[in-house]
Each structure stands twice: as C-alpha cells, then as structure tokens.
Nucleic acid binder design. Sequence first.
DNA 1: ATGGTCGCGCAGCGA
Length: 257
Amino acid sequence: MRLATWNVNSLKARLQRVEDWLTDVQPDVVCLQETKLADTAFPAMTFEALGYATAHHGEGRWNGVAILSRVGLTDVQAGFDDDDAPDKEARLLWATCGGVRVASAYVPNGRALDNDHYTYKLGWLARLRAHLDLHDDPGGAVAVCGDFNIAPADADVWDPAVFEGATHVSAPERAALAELERWGLVDVFRTLQPEPGLFSWWDYRAGNFHKRHGMRIDLVMASAALADRATYAVIDRNARKGQAPSDHAPVIVDFAD
DNA sequence: ATGGTCGCGCAGCGA
C-alpha cells in the first residue's frame, strides 16, 4: 500500500496539480490538509473519476482535511470522538482504508510561544493522544498522517539557531509528539531515511525552497506493526517545483501487504 | 527570521 500525506494549501488552487500528481504517483491512500473548502465544495467526483473514494471535513476558508482511498474507505469520523466540545476547526479526519486506521491531521500552527494558539496546539495534541487511547490499538495498524507543524528534531530544520524561541521546535511541542510515540506511533520517514536536511515545507518567501531553507513538519506516524511493513519513504520535492506549487511537498511511504 | 509569497477575498489575516 502506497500512503501519502500532503498539505495542499487550498485544494481549489491546487486541484489540477493534485490530479496530475495522483496520476504520476499512483498512491493508494492520500491524506490532504488545508483544503480550505466547505464540504459542499469538495470535488469528490474528480477523485472518483480517478478511482478514489473520498471523505472530507471542511469549514470553508481555513483548514479542512480529506482522505482519498482506492483500497476502501469506511468508518469515517470527523474530529475527535470524545465527550468534550467539538473542535471549532476542521483539522482531523479518520477512516479505515485497506485495513489501516488512517487519520488526516492538520495540527494547529501555534503562531508564537506566547500566543493563545500555541496553547490550543498543545491541547489539540494532548487530545489526539487521548483519542488514540480511547479508540485505537497500538498493536494494530494505525497511521496518523499530516502537517504536524512540529519539526521532530534539529536535523529536521535548516538552521535550528534561527528558530530558537519559535514555534515548531519548542520542547513542549516535541514532548507532545513524543507522547504520541509513547502511545506507539513511529515517525516512519525518519526510520527509513536517517540523513538530516530532508524537508517537507519551505516558506514561499525569500526563495527558501531554492536555498534549501525548510523544515520537515509533515509526518507519517505509524503504529509499530505497520511501521515494520514500511519498505520505502520519500519526500516528493518535485511537487514543490514549477508553477503554483503548495508550500509543502507530499510525503510518500510504501508498506508491504 | 521575515522584506521577501501565497490564498482568501477584497482589507488584512493566517501560514
């Protein structure tokens, strides 16, 4: 099974590129983030024509997550399934695809360490961990995929010194990610690709992509049993090139059956 | 780290 995650930064603006990429890459399951669409505007027919069943959880102008699958798509759950008030933002979607419990996650950015949004981010990650405790089996096949807005280690940042005191690299965020690892999730890309300096996001500004000034913040977090089946992982930098790219590149992982 | 750039939607915010 070929699984991918991609923050497309508006599916409306990116649809043709996504279609072309699906045709080229032939993924079986795709998690999309930042669709920036209402559910009524989601182009389900376009993906259906390419062989994909879909689920979308959107709100309109901001956020929005989707799952595409050509290996089955059942038991869809939007957001957190717990007793708390529903998340006000459309950032999480679950479905079972090809025997894997898949989540498409768009973790809050955090903005700055002293910002309320940072508190929301940490709470959101804790709630994700609690959701896993409630509903999922760390011994099963689980893949939480998406834009985590966290660089797991300094090797995932082009210049760690530049980001001291900033979000995406702070100890509490990394601790929240480590809590997901404690539950049983593994950063699959990192297990297959040990070298530093491999990034999935580059700011549009200042020619950062061409200067290789990026971060690896898009992750496939797989349960150990699933991670053991991973045979190949790549960040598709080609998708960040050319006309009208997203500022994120897709992360692709292949799993043996 | 953000002057830089995008997307949304038509000013300025969010990333």
